[in-house]
């Protein structure tokens, strides 16, 4: 593997982090994109789904704040997940109103744009790496993915 590729690999890994302010701006844009996708997928118009999106934006805002200030190695996804789980526990007083609003957002429709961004994000380095040692890496990757998935499913299946 030549140094050029290794450099771009490092550059890519380092480049991923946005500042707090940038994250909030990006989040607002992604929310609008998600509302459009949700509209096309479910027919629920963006105005009707807006309260649901605002609730989600609020949860993420708190999650990002916690990631920034409570440095215990928890990634943002874990904080956001934790907040939204706690707010919707059966004993939570806000659970019912949150769930009622969030019905207007289809979970699959808000993933569709993420996959679109993912495909747009594929870089020259990744295409090159794929072309060069594509077959070996592809074969090993498929084994890794299959092994991980089936391994977890087998353990879970045996213990359920």
């Amino acid at each position: 593997m030549n140094t050029n590729i290794e450099n771009t690999i490092e550059a890519k890994v380092e480049e991923v982090y946005l500042s707090f302010k940038e994250s909030l701006v990006v989040l607002a844009v992604v929310s609008i994109v998600s509302l459009a996708s949700n509209w096309a997928g479910t027919g629920i118009n963006p105005i009707k789904a807006l309260p649901a999106m605002l609730i989600i934006y609020g949860m993420i805002l708190v999650g990002l704040l916690l990631t920034k200030y409570v440095r215990i190695g928890f990634p943002a996804v874990a904080w956001v997940s934790l907040i939204s789980v706690l707010l919707t526990l059966p004993i939570s007083p806000v659970s019912a109103p949150i769930l009622a609003e969030l019905k207007n957002l289809n979970f699959l429709s808000i993933v569709t744009p993420v996959l679109a961004y993912a495909a747009m994000a594929i870089t020259k380095m990744e295409v090159d790496l794929f072309k060069r040692s594509g077959f070996k890496i592809a074969a090993i990757s498929i084994l890794v993915f299959t092994g991980t998935y089936v391994g977890s499913a087998l353990v879970a299946n045996a213990l359920l």
Partner: peptide
């Protein structure tokens, strides 16, 4: 970097 943020609405919905 947008993907990293873009997945968060889904994670929040997931939590609910």
């Amino acid at each position: 970097p947008i993907i990293v943020i873009g997945i968060l609405p889904f994670i929040a919905k997931f939590g609910t």
